[in-house]
Amino acid sequence: MGTLDGKVAFITGAGQGVGQGIAFALAREGAAVAVTGRTESKLVETVEHIRGFGGTAEPITCDISDTEQITAAVEKTVEAFGGVDVLVNNASLNPLGPVLDLTPDLMMKAYQSGPVASFHAMQTVYPIMKQRGGGSIVNMVSSAAVRWDMSGYGGYASAKEALRSLTRAAAAEWGADGIRVNAVAPHALSPGLKWWTENRPDEAAEFIKSIPLGRIGDCEEDIGRAIVWIVGDDARYLTGATIPLDGGQARWS
């Protein structure tokens, strides 16, 4: 028996990296998982792996920058599994670069794929979760806003901080409906972080030195397993929080 038997999870950006690790972890605990993302081949590979260890999952193509596609993906999830109990807003476009190099178009894309997409997904699953007696939402954010040096991270951090604020507001407003909303700030060896370590090796080396546990987290074992706890009944009194899964690096006030 898994701790999430009978639960249905909807995860964005689940075809690779952190989202995939979360999908694997939740499926191993018995959740039926809607594996969503833009690239169908990656979704199919993820689902095949889940089915290979006896889990239940369906691939659902969805570009989160299009709110209509988010709505359709949630509807497909309900058709396939009967509802949604867990929402993980993981996918987003993350703009990096000095403030003067950012463009309004890039910033709009970051916000549309980040806080706006997450906001729409949250609104879409809310009546479903309420009807089912509650649920758990996890918004993936970042410790970029509390870096020792934020140079080059202004656009990325601002979008993630907007999502943190939305998380706290929804937690306060939806608690009476049994819906918990939390944010998680991970460090994990995702494709994006792998690219960063390869293209900015000196900065990455200093970054890893600043992690007390001395390593970057594993997408499934370190991040996914923690999400299992956060969305499960053992964390039923946890809401409105930001949980740093970063090996102790970030200094959150």
Rank of each mutant, 00 (worst) to 15 (best):
P115M: 08
Q16S: 07
E45W: 03
L106F: 12
E161C: 11
C62K: 01
T197K: 10
E203G: 03
P201W: 02
G155L: 09
S113F: 01
G82Y: 10
R180K: 13
A73R: 07
A204H: 08
W196R: 08
G19F: 05
E75N: 03
H187R: 02
R200E: 15
L93M: 07
P186C: 07
K209S: 10
L26Q: 08
I128Y: 10
D63Q: 10
E206I: 05
T46Y: 12
P104L: 11
K194F: 05
V35A: 09
V47Q: 09
A23I: 05
S151T: 15
A25D: 00
W148D: 14
T56R: 08
P127K: 11
S165N: 09
M1L: 15
V228M: 01
Q16F: 05
Y111I: 15
K160H: 02
Q20E: 02
A91D: 07
Y153T: 08
K42E: 15
P191Y: 05
V181Q: 02
S41M: 10
C219F: 09
A170N: 03
V228F: 00
T61E: 02
G114H: 05
Q16I: 15
S210R: 15
L245V: 15
E79L: 09
A73W: 02
T46W: 12
D63H: 14
S151R: 14
T12R: 07
R236N: 11
A183N: 06
G17P: 08
D202L: 04
R236T: 01
A25P: 06
I128P: 05
K209W: 13
R164L: 15
L26G: 02
G114S: 12
A169T: 15
R28Q: 07
I208F: 00
G217D: 04
G30R: 08
G82K: 01
E79D: 10
A57E: 15
L166C: 02
P104H: 11
A205S: 10
Y126I: 09
D149E: 11
E68W: 06
V99R: 09
A91N: 09
D222T: 04
L96V: 01
L213M: 07
A235Q: 11
A72M: 09
R168E: 13
I216V: 12
G37E: 06
A80K: 04
W252T: 10
V228C: 05
E206F: 00
V8W: 00
K76L: 11
S92V: 13
Q123G: 01
I70H: 01
Q123W: 01
T61S: 00
P115R: 06
E79Q: 10
T39P: 03
T12L: 08
A80G: 00
A23W: 09
E173A: 14
L106G: 11
A110K: 06
A9E: 00
L26W: 02
